[in-house]
Computed example of a mutant assay.
Amino acid sequence: MKSGAVYMMANRKNGTIYTGSTSKLVQRVYQHREMVVEGFTKTHGCVRLVWFEVHADLREARLRELQIKRWKRSWKVRMIEEANPDWRDLWFEIQGR
């Protein structure tokens, strides 16, 4: 069983939000931050990790990602602000994971 994480990236406080899941959180966030992969986050400048949740099973993380993607934006904002009211970049907090 491979562990995983679901995460949200944003371009600024109350800005555009991207939700994803991965088995390698640090590596994936680095790719978003450095804009090395074409796609939504590069187009919209979503380089700030504002929320993440670790799961013991990657399949659980992917299911949670799909669940969150179906949510209203206001629900996502509320979840971010409950854990990270200032929308700080959590990149430095995941170093060494």
Rank of each mutant, 00 (worst) to 15 (best):
L25H: 08
G15M: 01
V26P: 01
T16G: 07
R97K: 05
D57Y: 12
G4M: 00
T16D: 07
V77A: 13
T19L: 02
L49G: 04
E34H: 15
A61T: 13
N11C: 06
Q27W: 12
K42P: 13
K69I: 14
T19V: 15
M35H: 14
K13Q: 04
V6A: 07
K2C: 00
G15A: 02
D57H: 11
H44S: 03
K13C: 02
H44C: 05
H44V: 05
E81C: 04
L25S: 02
E53V: 01
F40I: 14
Y18T: 07
L58G: 08
S74Y: 15
Q27E: 12
A61Y: 03
G39R: 15
A10L: 08
Y7S: 01
Q31E: 10
E34R: 10
I17G: 02
N14Y: 14
G15P: 05
R33W: 09
F92E: 00
A61H: 07
P85W: 12
W51K: 06
S74H: 15
K72E: 11
K69W: 09
R73W: 15
I80N: 06
V54R: 05
Q31R: 07
V54M: 02
L63N: 11
V50W: 09
W87A: 03
D57L: 03
A83Y: 12
D57F: 08
F40T: 13
V77H: 13
G20C: 01
T41N: 08
V50D: 07
W75H: 15
Y18F: 05
H32T: 09
L90D: 07
D89V: 04
M79P: 12
N11W: 10
C46R: 08
V6I: 09
I80H: 13
R70C: 08
W51Y: 14
K42V: 08
W51N: 01
G15I: 08
R70Q: 15
E82Y: 15
K76Q: 14
H55Q: 02
N11E: 10
V29K: 09
T41H: 11
D86L: 03
F52T: 02
T22K: 02
S3V: 05
H55E: 04
L25D: 04
A56W: 09
Y30D: 03
Y7D: 02
W71V: 12
W51G: 01
W75T: 13
M35V: 10
W87V: 01
